[in-house]
Write a protein that binds this DNA or RNA. Structure first.
Lengths: 276, 276
DNA sequence: TAATCTAACAACGA
DNA sequence: CTCGTTGTTAGATT
C-alpha cells in the first residue's frame, strides 16, 4: 500500500484548502510540462489562463472545478495519484512537477502526476459538453443523495454492485479504495447483482457509503496522500476494516480476509461475511 | 426461406417505384394502427402530415426518406420484414396493415409490419439529431464508396469482418441476407478480423459488395419480398451462391455448405473456400 | 497495483 | 431476421 489513488475524501480536503488559500488570487504565470494532460494547445492554455482571477472552487467526484473569473473553468483530475501542492512566495518548489501555476504575489501550486491525469481549461459555455465531466453522477454526500435515490439507482439494474457504485456516471467519487470497506460494512459481496439487494441491504449500503467517506474526510483523507500543504491525512491502515488486509482476521468473524479478482479490479473481502 | 428482411436492394427498388408513383401528391388522410412505430403521438403525427405534399424520395441504407413539403420528412424503416404497398383509388386494401396514408385523389399506400419497424416524422431541423439515422454510414453504391474508402474503414479495426460490414454506422444497407454471398465471393470467413485482410482480399470484398447488391437491384430485389406494387422480385434461390444453401454443394469446390453461428447471427459458408 | 476511454461483444427486450 | 440498451472485457493511454 504505497501510493493510493485520490477519491472523494482526498479531493474534498484539497478543495477546502484551496478555496481558503487561493480564492481571489490573480494568475500571473502558467508553466506546462506535460501538454498531453491538457485539452487544448499549451500556448492557448497559458494565454487564456494568465491574468484571470480564481473564483469559486468546488468538486464533483474526483474532479476539482476552479472558476477563473469571469467565464473560464480549470478542471483538474488527479488520475491515478498525484501531488497537488501549494507553494509560498519564498518556499522551495518540489523537485518534479508537470504543471505550475503562479499568482501575482508569487505564491502558487504545482501538480505532479504519477500516472495519467487531466488539467482542462473550458469556457463556461463548453462545460456541459465536456466529455469527462458532463455525465458525472450525483455526489454521495450531497443532500439529494437519499436512501430513496439509491433504491431507484439500483432497481432494475443487472450490473454487479461494485462496478455500479464505482461507475462515475452513477455516483461520483468512489474508487477502488473506499469501495472495499463500504461493501464490507454492508456485508455485500462485490459481485452481487444490484437488483437483488434487499431493502435492508440497500439501507446498510447507503449508511456505509456515507460513513466511510465522511469518516475519512474527518481525518483529513488517506495517510498515503498529500494534501495542498504537503501533509498526509490521518485515515490509515488502522481505519480500514478489510481493505488491503489480505490474510488478516475479519474484524467481525475473524475469518481471514481474501484478496479476489472482480472484473478488472481487486477486491478485499471477508469470505464469511460477504457471501455471493 | 419464407420471409426475408429487406436490405438495400429492396429499399432501392421501393424508392424508385414510390418516387415515380407518388411524388407531388397531397396527403389527405393518415391512419395509424400501431402507435409504437411512431416517434411522436399519433394525433400530432396525423395533424402534421395531412395536407402536405410529397417531395423528393431517397434512401439511406435500409431507411426510406420521404420529403413532405415544405419542411418535414417521413422516415420509414421496414424492420424485420414488411409490406409497403401502393393502392389505387378503386382497388381493394390489404387485409391487415398498421399504417395507411391516402392522397387527395384516393390513391395511397399501406404498411404492414411483420416484426418491428419505424415510421418517424421529423422536421427538417430535427433530421441531423435523429438517433436512428443520423449516424448511418455511407451507401455501398455511392460514388464516395471507393476501394480506398473500404481500406480506410477496415484498417486498425479488430472487429470481425461480418459484424463490421453489417454495422449500419460503417456501411448502410447490408443485412444478414446479402452478406452471405458477399463474403463467399470474397472467400472470407465471417469471423476474419477486419485488420488482417490482404489488399487482394479487400479488393475482392469491394467488388463482391457492389456486384451482389447491384445484381439484385437489376433483378428487382428478392423473390421473397413484395415491391410497391405487390410484385415479387426476381432474385431467388438460384441467385444465391451459399446463402440459405445448407448442405448443398459449394458452387466452386463442391464441399457442402454449412450453416454456422457467428455471434448472434447465422452464417452460410463453404468450409473449404472460407477459412478462418 | 491503480483511473478512464474506447472498441468489441454478449444478452435482452421491443 | 433488426436495432437499441445495458453490461462486460480487453487494450491503450502520457
Amino acid at each position: 500500500m504505497n501510493k493510493i489513488m485520490p477519491e472523494l475524501p482526498e479531493i474534498t480536503v484539497l478543495n477546502r484548502q484551496m478555496a481558503k488559500e487561493i480564492t481571489g488570487k490573480h494568475i500571473h504565470e502558467v508553466e506546462v510540462c506535460q501538454p498531453k494532460c491538457l485539452n487544448i494547445p499549451p500556448e492557448q492554455f497559458v494565454e487564456t489562463a494568465v491574468s484571470k482571477a480564481i473564483g469559486q472552487i468546488y468538486s464533483r467526484g474526483k474532479w476539482l472545478f476552479i472558476k477563473l473569473k469571469p467565464d473560464y473553468n480549470l478542471l483538474i483530475n488527479l488520475g491515478m495519484g498525484a501531488d497537488l501542492l501549494y507553494f509560498k512566495p519564498s518556499s522551495k518548489l518540489p523537485e518534479k512537477y508537470q504543471f505550475k501555476l503562479t499568482f501575482a504575489e508569487h505564491s502558487g501550486f504545482t501538480i505532479r502526476f504519477y500516472w495519467f491525469g487531466y488539467i482542462h481549461l473550458l469556457h463556461e459555455k463548453e462545460l456541459n459538453q465536456h466529455k469527462l465531466t458532463a455525465k458525472l453522477g450525483i455526489s454521495p454526500l450531497d443532500k439529494e443523495f437519499t436512501k430513496q435515490y439509491l433504491v431507484k439507482l439500483l432497481e432494475k439494474r443487472k450490473a454487479r454492485i461494485k462496478s455500479l457504485l464505482m461507475d462515475q456516471k452513477n455516483i461520483a467519487g468512489i474508487g477502488n479504495v473506499y469501495i472495499q470497506d463500504i461493501l464490507f460494512n454492508a456485508r455485500l459481496h462485490p459481485n452481487r447483482k444490484a437488483n437483488n439487494l434487499s431493502d435492508q441491504e440497500i439501507s446498510d449500503l447507503y449508511d456505509a457509503i456515507k460513513n466511510v467517506l465522511n469518516s475519512s474526510i474527518k481525518k483529513g483523507g488517506l495517510a498515503y496522500e498529500k494534501n495542498f500543504y504537503g501533509q498526509k491525512g490521518n485515515f490509515g491502515t488502522e481505519d480500514f476494516r478489510v481493505g488491503y488486509k489480505t490474510g488478516e482476521p475479519c474484524p467481525v468473524c475473524f475469518a481471514p480476509i481474501e484478496k479476489i479478482r472482480t472484473g478488472s479490479t481487486s477486491s478485499y473481502i471477508c469470505p464469511k461475511c460477504q457471501k455471493l
